[in-house]
Amino acid sequence: MSYQRVPGLVSIVVTVYNKLPYLSDCLTSLLNQTYTNWELILIDDLSTDGSYEYTVSWLNSNEPLLRERKGIYTLRLPRNAGYAGAITAGMYLAKGEYIAIQDADDLSHPERLAKQVRYLNDNRHIDLLGTNYEVFEDGQPDSRQAVNWLKYGDQIGKVYAKGGHCICHGTAMFRGAVFDRIGGHTRRIEGAEDYEFIAKVIKPGARNVDNLREVLYYYRKHQKQRSREFFGKPQKEQGHDA
């Protein structure tokens, strides 16, 4: 079966579960993107802290700014489906040639979408593209730290072949055709959905994934992030996302 995707459109998928304090920063960073051909698909995984209601109110209050955008879609799931279920639901709704992941507690650089789209347009063999990023403590957005666990080029496939992880999931943009071919995130490995998805994209013996060396994403460390629940430490120390 052939799926028709909108050329040049970036479908940004944001999943939300009790991220109320961070939503304004996240959404503002997306609204400020210099690349304007995007749609936002926000999936609320049955939050209990008012996240969904806040999001709807925030979007309505920013309606004049959003008027020129192609589409803003919010969906509140009827039951808590977990991260893999929520993000895969968002990907099913995505119409774009490209799908970008954005974590609800993080921020994207204004040039993020533009530079990832440009690279993917210029490098047709690349199916998934991450970026470099910096980490900041919650409440200290101007005190960011570099990370050193990412890899680039041919090294990426080698790391994943050995069971390692070297792409920050929240920075990923990939071709919608990839989702049409392999589907979304597994629900079999809770806490490592990000790793499994990227590993599934990688074609053995082919360089079809990469990272941009430029910092285009800002990762927030806080006490309620998922990586603390599953790994005890945030991504900066463990190399896992969310």
Rank of each mutant, 00 (worst) to 15 (best):
72 I>A: 03
238 Q>H: 13
187 R>D: 14
125 H>K: 14
70 K>P: 05
69 R>M: 06
11 S>E: 10
171 T>Y: 00
106 D>V: 05
105 D>V: 01
90 G>R: 07
109 H>G: 04
97 E>Y: 08
38 W>N: 04
166 C>T: 09
166 C>D: 06
151 K>T: 06
90 G>Q: 11
218 Y>A: 06
43 I>D: 02
1 M>G: 15
187 R>T: 15
214 E>P: 00
84 A>G: 04
156 I>T: 00
111 E>M: 07
9 L>I: 09
44 D>V: 04
208 N>R: 06
1 M>V: 05
6 V>M: 02
148 N>S: 04
104 A>T: 04
189 I>Q: 12
13 V>C: 12
30 L>G: 00
181 R>T: 09
16 V>L: 11
16 V>N: 07
80 N>C: 09
221 K>R: 13
44 D>G: 00
158 K>Y: 01
225 Q>E: 13
195 Y>G: 01
227 S>D: 13
87 I>P: 05
115 K>A: 03
91 M>S: 15
147 V>M: 01
50 G>C: 09
64 P>G: 11
8 G>S: 03
173 M>K: 08
231 F>T: 07
6 V>F: 09
98 Y>L: 07
4 Q>Y: 08
97 E>R: 00
116 Q>Y: 07
227 S>F: 06
218 Y>E: 07
155 Q>W: 11
99 I>P: 01
230 F>W: 03
115 K>I: 07
190 E>L: 13
10 V>N: 01
224 K>E: 12
71 G>Q: 14
174 F>W: 08
69 R>K: 15
155 Q>T: 15
63 E>N: 15
93 L>R: 06
88 T>N: 13
214 E>I: 05
190 E>I: 12
119 Y>M: 03
186 T>E: 13
40 L>H: 05
141 P>L: 05
51 S>M: 11
65 L>W: 09
169 H>E: 12
205 G>M: 07
40 L>K: 02
150 L>K: 06
79 R>E: 14
177 A>W: 01
19 K>N: 14
221 K>N: 14
61 S>I: 06
173 M>V: 09
163 G>A: 11
106 D>R: 01
127 D>P: 02
92 Y>L: 11
50 G>S: 12
137 E>T: 15
6 V>Q: 14
4 Q>E: 10
33 Q>R: 09
184 G>E: 05
118 R>A: 15
130 G>I: 00
56 V>Y: 05
